[in-house]
């Protein structure tokens, strides 16, 4: 670019090296990784739903939720392995366990969860070893919430501004989004008389997610990627769909059709949230502004002993 030209555009608010990113773009591929985030949430919350259904005697709900938990875990694992640069070395994940590496911790959640949820689902479908199946289901239910939320740690524990700066809110967004997905799927597939908990779970998830997401959007510049461009659109779709589904849930009551539609909308919302969060992260890594401006502000604050100062540029 001509430097003359550059000098003619309005004074940029920050400097950078030829507009190049400072951070590396995450190499995680779409749709593999956002899909994994989604499936993890779906599976984890479904395991909870399944266990509740089992305890409260809702076999139809239990069956769907068990299958969702097992299927989500299996699909998630496939997505994760597919994303690896060297899939044949997936097992290297289990060489060590490192609390500083959510991916490591996550592997030690995903692996047993997958096994337990799979066993529970298999037992449920085939009727073989029902007791052990139940036990496995209980285990999966215990691992479900961590599975649904650790993925937030996975993305937040990076230098990516949109993820890291949202590390307090993202776990809740993911928990809520997982609950929505699990509830939504069940609403679609389970007769309405057994789907009450699913509806409540989805509704509760929706509330948690919307609250948490609001928290992120209040974060100023870091929130920008969640609000603009493609990720912004996805996040809006997610919010709108969540609201619509929630409304439909409340209004639609026990209508099978409305319930199924609302369920599908929850799923869509959950998917959109995962893709939105994922892409917001990518965008914030791509544009050096999101690294430079907040860091400069932070430095300025440090230098002026905490007094707010805006000296970027």
């Amino acid at each position: 670019m001509s430097f003359r030209e550059r000098a003619m555009v309005p004074e940029p608010e920050f400097e950078s090296y030829y507009g190049r990113p400072i951070l590396k773009q995450p190499t995680w591929k779409t749709p593999d990784v956002p899909l994994y985030l989604f499936l993890g949430g779906l599976a984890g919350a479904s395991a909870v739903l399944a266990e509740g259904a089992a305890l409260t005697g809702r076999p139809a709900l239990e069956k769907v939720a068990r299958l969702a938990a097992a299927g989500g875990a299996a699909g998630g694992t496939v997505a994760l392995v597919h994303d690896l640069g060297r899939p044949e070395r997936f097992l290297n994940m289990l060489r060590v366990i490192k609390p500083t590496s959510p991916l490591s911790v996550g592997s030690f959640i995903l692996a047993p969860f997958g096994a337990l949820a799979g066993a529970a689902a298999a037992s449920q479908v085939t009727g073989v070893l029902p007791r052990l199946g139940r036990l496995a289901g209980a285990g999966a239910a215990a691992l479900g919430p961590p599975l649904a939320t650790y993925t937030a740690a996975l993305v937040a524990n990076t230098a990516v501004p949109a993820w890291h700066e949202a590390h307090r809110e993202l776990p809740f967004v993911f928990a809520g989004s997982g609950a929505q997905a699990a509830g939504g799927l069940a609403m679609m597939l389970v007769p309405t008389d057994q789907a009450g908990p699913a509806r409540r779970m989805a509704l509760g998830g929706a509330a948690v997610e919307i609250l948490a997401a609001e928290g992120i959007l209040k974060k100023g510049l870091v929130a920008e990627p969640y609000d603009q461009g493609r990720p912004g659109k996805l996040m809006k779709v997610a919010r709108f769909a969540t609201a619509a589904a929630a409304a439909a849930t409340v209004v639609g009551g026990r209508s099978r059709v409305l319930s199924a539609l609302a369920g599908a909308t929850y799923l869509t919302a959950s998917l959109a949230t995962r893709f939105g969060v994922f892409e917001a992260g990518l965008e914030s890594a791509r544009d050096p502004k999101y690294v430079v401006v907040p860091q400069k502000e932070r430095l300025a604050r440090k230098q002026t002993g905490g007094a707010a100062a805006h000296t970027a540029g």
């Binding site: 409260t56 919430p145 939320t149 590390h167 307090r168 993202l170 776990p171 928990a175 609950a179 409540r200």
Partner: peptide, 20 residues
């Protein structure tokens, strides 16, 4: 991060329990 993940997992459990 882990604290918030824990809390969120707890929230999910709570939502689950409440649903039933």
């Amino acid at each position: 991060i882990w604290k918030h993940v824990g809390a969120a997992a707890g929230a999910l459990v709570a939502v689950g329990v409440a649903s039933f």
